[in-house]
Amino acid sequence: MKNNTFIARSKIKDAPVFHVINTILLVVISLVCVLPFLNVLATALSTAGNQINFWPKGFTWGNFISVFTNGGFWRAMGVSFLVVVCGTLLSVTVMFSAAYALSKPDFPFRKGLMVFFIIVMIFSGGMVPNYLVVNSLGLTRSPLALILPSVVQVYNLILIKSYLQGLPPELEESAKIDGASNLQIMFKILFPVSMPCVASVSLFTAVTFWNNYTSALIYLGTEEKWYPLSLFILNYIQSEPDALVGTWENIQKANIEAAMIVLSIIPILVVYPFVLKFFTKGVTVGSVKG
């Protein structure tokens, strides 16, 4: 938000009733956003069979302990971290260097390549052809299937490209006079200057990789070894509890689910303050121009 608008508008002292009602409604809306998280936290700390609203009943750490001792859960979390780190690094690097070339107004294939990439954004071969290509490359039993098909993020490409086009050309020209190569210009000059844009694009890419489960669903099939956390939890949610087997894990299934969900959202909550910072800088909104 721009500060000057705030100051200018807050001088207007009118409609007290409107402001009271507006504030109350916004508090209610904020609560609606928060309460479901309290419910899942309360469920994760409760024993099964209790009516749970927003406070645990039959308090227990057992659900968390059950998740902590579940090797599959940690493995899936490891896969997710691996995919997020490698996927984000690879995708942002590839998109940045492509954006660098495409940001030159007289780069000879610029127009054609932009059309080439925009087609990627708006049309796809569909699930089965995608699967068959990844399968014939021999990737369907490997975590590479979660990374390589998602490297091209056209929206990020456009964002970075328009950011680079907005930089003053003198930045590069002086380096060129000093005899710097394109690679040096990109890494030593443009990359540091583009940090706000690169950081926000990386953050959004990382969140997308962390949350995505469709790639794993399509490409990995029953290869549960490489399931990322999102698909691991979905698989657990959709599995039928075997009511006849009265183990603790079976009775507590819904509560263990909740504990898994709580643990899986912690990384997002950790990076969220940084995400919010980029909104206030306006890096991501309204900066897309062809």
Binding site: S97, L132, V133, V152, L157
Partner: peptide, 28 residues
């Protein structure tokens, strides 16, 4: 701008393999 081509090449290859090749698969 010849020296710029390698910069855009990886993105083009990824798009060709994982987006355009499946489009050929539409023939299925």
């Amino acid at each position: 701008h010849k020296s710029l081509i390698p910069f855009v090449l990886p993105a083009v290859v990824f798009a060709l393999v994982f987006s355009y090749l499946p489009m050929v698969g539409i023939l299925i």
